[in-house]
Computed example of a mutant assay.
Amino acid sequence: MRRRRSLSPEEADLWRSVARTARPLHSPPIHLPEPAPAPEPPPLAHARPRLSPFLLGEKHRKPEKHDLAPGLSDLVAQVPLRMDAGTHARMTRGKLQPEARIDLHGMTLAEAHPELIRFILNAQSSGLRLVLVITGKGKRREDTGPIPQRVGALRHQVPHWLHLSPLGPAVLQVTEAHLKHGGGGAYYVYLRKR
């Protein structure tokens, strides 16, 4: 004799949906197990209402600006301090005078990279500690596309070059220059001793 197996909850749901569309022909009803109640989804901790609550007569609040990429000065400032804190403080306040400077204004990336390598390595071999690299702030162009364009290719690329080989081992710290030495368009580069 065959053993009868019971229907799974999915099979019972499927049978109920079929049975609703069929017309019975004097047969006794089939007793199916009741479906288990569906578990409630857990409340989302990060879900917020789409509109913030407001009061009548309240002024409109501007939505927060979402900047997906941090600014260049923020990225440079996030690098851990690897030099003397007192010297770093004097340098960022513009109290230290750079011993040499290079101006990369108007150069293309292909022209500026070898010039920067030559300048930094020569400055380190000469025993200099603080040099100034002037990149300029870049020209603002009309932005017509859906993807925003960076302003100042050199300004963004120079900090990366200074951390990569062959300049990485020579550079101890890179910091945005003080206003009297160029501000956001220049960098202080503190070199390691040979």
Rank of each mutant, 00 (worst) to 15 (best):
H31P: 01
P35W: 00
P28Q: 07
P9M: 03
I30S: 07
E40C: 01
P39Q: 04
T21F: 09
P35A: 09
P35D: 00
L25Q: 02
A12I: 00
P24S: 15
T21W: 11
R23E: 14
L7V: 10
D13N: 02
S6V: 03
L32M: 08
I30G: 05
L32I: 06
L7A: 15
R20P: 00
P35G: 09
A12E: 02
P33D: 07
E10M: 11
T21A: 08
W15M: 14
L32G: 00
P35M: 05
S8F: 02
L25R: 02
E11M: 15
S17H: 02
P28M: 02
P35V: 07
S17Q: 07
A38V: 13
W15L: 15
T21Y: 05
H26Q: 10
H26E: 13
P9Q: 10
P39K: 00
A12W: 03
L14M: 13
E10R: 06
E34G: 01
A12F: 04
S27Y: 14
P37Y: 15
P37I: 07
P28T: 11
T21Q: 04
S27W: 12
L25V: 09
E34T: 00
S27C: 03
P28W: 07
E11D: 15
E11I: 15
E40P: 01
E10Q: 10
R16L: 05
L25H: 10
W15P: 05
S17M: 06
P9A: 07
V18R: 03
